[in-house]
Design a binder for these strands. Structure first.
Lengths: 122, 122
DNA sequence: CGGCATCCCAAATGATACTG
DNA sequence: CAGTATCATTTGGGATGCCG
């Protein structure tokens, strides 16, 4: 029973509404972080990995491949040994940045009190 | 081992970046849809349910409660029999609408070809 | 160095049924 | 009409190891 009214879709995800599709494309655990890290420069796989505390090897590789499939990032492979691979945002990915800025502002509503008070408490 | 650098959080979700928190708050399977449906008027539970094809009773109730907790929707209970409950966007929820518009535009990149051609195919 | 496969667990979602 | 609870299923993500 497929969704006969789906008008927006990508790779098996289908929605009647473009917004829902967008969110579902961005919803992976690390996708936003990765896009964020690539907002200025392209980066090597290892650079990305060490700039994202807590991400696992598997997830970084997997999410990058999904972002690549979607068309948000582009992958450059240098034919050298040992391998060197760089990732950068595509036009589609760059188009996301202003939206992320807005989401960032919206998220300010949930800022937690900082901990200086606790750390310096007496 | 908690994330000592988390600065944005809500109800157990914690991130160092406001954007990531925002996405995680909106990432539920039906949250965007519900917000979208409430963008103009408040609606009764049953209205929402029948306006969202495929959503289950459980998920609608659950996602509504999460949206309420976050502060995106407000719930009005009329003390009548049978029960009558209405939901509407709060100020925080309304603040999301312009962002959703942008995500909607971005999602246009993934519009599928419509099916008139198929349906009217000979 | 970077990619991929496998196994496993936890979280999210769906189906169904019961309640005021 | 609207809300909860329970159980089954699916999905996402973490750990680990092997490969070119």
């Amino acid at each position: 029973m497929s969704d006969a009214n789906a008008q927006y879709g990508f790779n098996g995800k289908n929605f009647p509404c473009a917004t829902e599709l967008s969110i579902s494309l961005l919803a992976g655990r690390w996708k936003m972080t990765i896009i964020w890290k690539l907002r200025e420069d392209k980066k090597r796989y290892g650079e990305l990995k060490s700039s994202i505390p807590g991400i696992t090897h598997k997830m970084l590789a997997q999410q990058l491949r999904e972002l690549e499939e979607i068309g948000i990032v582009r992958r450059y492979v240098y034919p050298v040994v040992p391998p060197k691979v760089e990732y950068e945002l595509t036009g589609l990915g760059l188009g996301l940045l202003p939206i992320l800025d807005r989401l960032n502002e919206w998220g300010e509503h949930f800022r937690l009190p900082d901990r200086e008070g606790i750390l310096s408490n007496r």
